[in-house]
Design a protein around this nucleic acid. Structure first.
Length: 795
DNA sequence: TAAACTGGCCTTTTT
DNA sequence: GGCCAGTTTA
């Protein structure tokens, strides 16, 4: 095992690791820091916990801390491991450190938990009985495999559904359980438990045979690797002398254990004789220094195993830990912070913390209640447009929501209003069927053992290899105990029809020949070869379905991604491309220079900031979400989610809700979120409060924050039939669109709009089909409309 | 074997 | 209201 490291197994400078006193750090690195931040940069010792409130400059502190270690030569770059929550955050941190120290940061590991573990596992794959080109299964892949297994075992009758089993397996792996340890704890008499155990066992075996790991395995298997092979662990323990973990409140048990393993002292028997590193009294190497940054008020991932105790109990785990609290906020106005403080204060059992700023009160928070989700979306669109006209950039605005399904109404209205937007995550590019198909081809040639990938592409494009044929091949594979892929060559021995046999042999030959390219060819060439030889894109183009043309273009876009990957990564091989794709997160896709408004879930918003934030759907059953109500701590976590959303805003915050919301096709009455009561009334200016929305501009204005719990009782007076209400609400926006063909408008034209009534065109910009009309409506105000699809007619 | 059709079920959040 | 799975029909 060789590492390309500078100074591996040596201390770079004279200053020993756990030193006391402040290091001689260049003052320029500390410029502009407050005393707490300064201490967080300068403290030296075994363990440091930085409790960083939202917007308290923790990224700045982390980057300067790393820079200071490098600058004083306390550490080589290669001795630093920094863990961030997203790849995007990792890249930004790397850039900022390089700026601070002047480009000498080569060899630093700054990455997510998952990326770091993949790196380790690919190097150490053999020890784990894996091949280095193992496939990483995303959640959809895991679910597809589980579905197959559950069907095979016919255990769906026992209440084992794919999502429930997937969730349970994920939870077990995050607790570092495996099949054997779970088998010991399970009640074998319970048929459902026994069935689950069998599914878990088969799932694990299938992954192993396919030379594949799922997301949770990436962490858990690395921990198992370190525990099973202390000499391997020692390699990394010796290497990483400074470990920094961001968003520590969202680490789960497996991630906690990983950090625990990495910071253990190196046992004397694993210390090389010729080491130049400082040894402890026993002849071992002391454990690495650990810095964690977190804020328990921003813990929002309990559902995926994040354990808030990891941060609460940090001081117990690391008794000599120093704790530094960062409370000064450099992001938001005081009004926004007051709202945030007040919201989070309703969570009991938390460490008291109060954000403050010197930035001044700023604007009040704006509240709005729409009659429907479309109405709410129209409010958002109108405000975005107003801000835009006042000089704000679209890219400085973001719209948050609790669940992805909320995007529908928002998108409809934003499109109709000609406002450019992007959705972070959403229906992800890589989740599209055609992209998964193309990726499955790549995966298959990188990792021929991956049966799941092969099954996906076996009959895509259509080659006449149906389920019966697949079953015959599978049976043959099972008899021989080989991957499905190896049976393709034997197709002529299986007594299948001549046409099918030829199709199978051809596919096998293509895959074999392209596989031979993989070690030397860049990923773009591999993909091109596969597309051309299998005729996948041609087949898409040949169908009558107009959607397929878009799909063909998507595959071509994937091809251009592989080319772009090659530019960034001249030496990158197929497996590196596949790894990168497998580990992209929603937040990684956000392009700050896109000139668009960004739409995302509250979860994706963590760690980001925008001048203007729209928090939509602040309703009961949505925030807090209905599903969270039954879970212990569920409401508290939802409140933290609200808190995270509020604290993303720098200058302007909008809180909006709707009185009715569509679900499963019909409309249900929505009630204002209980969390709105936590926002002091004087901080919000309601453009239309829930009470006003009910009385349709009447005199009865119910202050939302009146000091009674009955304040939302208006909703009980709503008639049960939503359709009738809708007609009464004359100003309710429907979100309707229509195709106006090549309708042209000119200033001065009068039009009628389905939602806004009559108005006069004051301006037209752009050219068809993207022409936009600026319309002054008689009663609904001024709006921008995308002429081609707006529900309008010329009068 | 593939396309067309029908009925059931859903919706948390994500690396 | 839309997606998916299973069934029917060519």
């Amino acid at each position: 095992m060789t590492f390309l490291l500078d100074g591996f197994d040596s201390d770079p400078g004279d200053s020993g690791l756990p030193s006391s006193g402040a290091p001689a750090v260049d003052e320029a690195l500390l410029a502009g820091l407050n005393p707490q931040q300064r201490e967080a940069v300068l403290h030296r010792g075994k363990a440091l916990l930085i409790v960083a409130g939202a917007g308290s400059g923790k990224t700045s502190v982390l980057t300067r801390r790393i820079a200071s270690l490098l600058q004083t030569r306390e550490a080589w770059p290669s001795q630093i491991l920094a863990i961030t929550f997203t790849n995007k955050a990792a890249n930004e941190m790397r850039e900022r450190v390089e700026q601070l120290v002047g480009g000498a940061a080569e060899g630093m590991w700054i990455s997510t938990f998952h990326s770091a573990c993949v790196r380790i596992l690919r190097r150490q794959a053999e020890a784990m009985g894996l091949k280095t080109a193992f496939t990483i299964y995303d959640s959809a892949d895991s679910r597809a495999l589980l579905k197959r297994i559950i069907k095979e075992l016919e255990v769906d009758t026992l209440g084992l559904t794919v999502p429930s089993v997937a969730g349970k397996i994920s939870k077990l792996k995050n607790e570092l359980s495996d099949v054997d340890s779970y088998a010991r704890s399970v009640n074998a008499d319970d048929p459902a438990d026994a069935a689950f155990l069998e599914v878990f066992r088969r799932y694990t075996e299938s992954l192993r045979r396919a030379n594949a790991l799922d997301f949770d395995d990436l962490i858990a298997e690395t921990v198992h690797l370190f525990r099973a092979f202390p000499e391997v662990a020692a390699l990394y323990q010796r290497r990483f002398r400074h470990i920094l973990v961001d968003e520590y409140q969202d680490t789960n048990h497996a991630q906690y254990a990983l950090i625990r393993e990495l910071t253990r002292p190196v046992e004397p028997q694993h210390v090389p004789a010729d080491t130049r590193m400082r040894l402890d009294a026993n002849g071992g190497i002391p454990g690495a220094s650990l810095t964690v940054v977190g804020d328990s008020d921003q813990s929002i991932y309990a559902f995926r195993g994040a354990d808030i105790r990891n941060i609460v109990e940090f001081e117990r785990d690391y008794p000599e830990a120093r704790v530094i609290l960062l409370e000064q906020n450099y992001r938001s106005t005081q009004n926004i912070l007051d709202a945030a403080n007040s919201v989070i204060a309703s969570n009991f059992d938390r460490q008291e913390k109060n954000l403050f700023t010197t930035a001044g009160a700023g604007d009040k928070i704006t509240g709005f209640t729409g009659y429907s989700a479309y109405d709410e979306a129209q409010f958002v669109a109108d405000e975005i447009q107003k801000l835009r006209e006042a000089g704000a950039a679209y890219s400085d605005m973001a719209v948050f929501f609790r669940v992805n399904s909320q995007t529908r109404a928002l998108e409809d209205i934003l499109i109709r209003s000609a406002i450019p937007y992007r959705i972070a995550g959403g229906t992800k590019f890589y989740e599209r069927a055609e992209i998964k198909d193309a990726m499955a081809y790549l995966v298959q040639v990188a990792n021929p053992a991956d049966d799941l990938a092969l099954r996906r592409i076996m009959n895509t494009p259509k080659r006449g290899i149906g389920p019966a044929t697949e079953a015959a091949l599978q049976a043959h594979a099972d008899r021989l105990g080989v991957p499905l892929r190896e049976t393709l060559r034997d197709a002529d021995q299986l007594g299948l029809g001549p046409k099918v046999t030829k199709a199978i042999i051809d596919l096998g030959t293509t895959l074999d020949e392209v596989e031979a390219m993989v070690p030397t060819a860049p990923p773009a060439d591999v993909l091109t070869e596969l597309i051309v030889r299998t005729g996948y894109v041609d087949a898409l183009r040949a169908t009558r379905d107009p959607q397929d043309e878009v799909r063909a273009e998507n595959v071509e876009e994937l091809l251009s991604f592989t080319k772009e990957f090659a530019r960034r990564n001249p030496e990158g091989r197929l497996i590196d491309f596949l790894t990168e794709v497998a580990l992209v997160a929603a937040a990684d896709e956000i392009d700050d220079a896109s000139g668009s408004v960004t739409l995302m879930t509250l979860h994706t918003a963590k760690g980001l900031e925008y001048d203007t934030v729209f928090l939509t759907g602040i309703e009961e059953d949505l925030l807090p979400h209905r599903m969270s109500a039954g879970e212990p701590g569920g409401i508290a976590e939802e409140r933290r989610l609200f808190y995270v959303g509020i604290t993303r805003a720098k200058k302007r915050l909008f809180l909006s809700l709707a009185m009715t919301r569509a679900q499963f096709g019909d409309t249900a009455v929505a009630m204002p979120s209980r969390f709105l009561q936590d926002v002091p009334g004087h901080l919000i200016e309601w453009r239309q409060s829930p009470g006003q929305a009910n009385s349709r501009g009447g005199t009865r204005s119910r202050a939302l924050n009146a000091p009674t719990r009955q304040r939302f009782s208006y909703s009980t007076s709503l008639p049960p039939a939503p359709n009738r209400e809708k007609r009464e609400w004359t100003s309710a926006v429907t979100g309707a669109v229509r195709d106006n063909g090549d309708l042209t408008l000119a200033p001065g034209d009068r039009i009628r709009h389905t939602d806004f009534g009559e108005g006069r065109v004051v301006d037209v910009t752009g050219t068809a089909p993207k022409a936009v009309a600026e319309v002054q409506f008689d009663t609904a105000g001024r709006k921008r409309l995308l002429i081609k699809i707006a529900p309008i007619e010329k009068l």
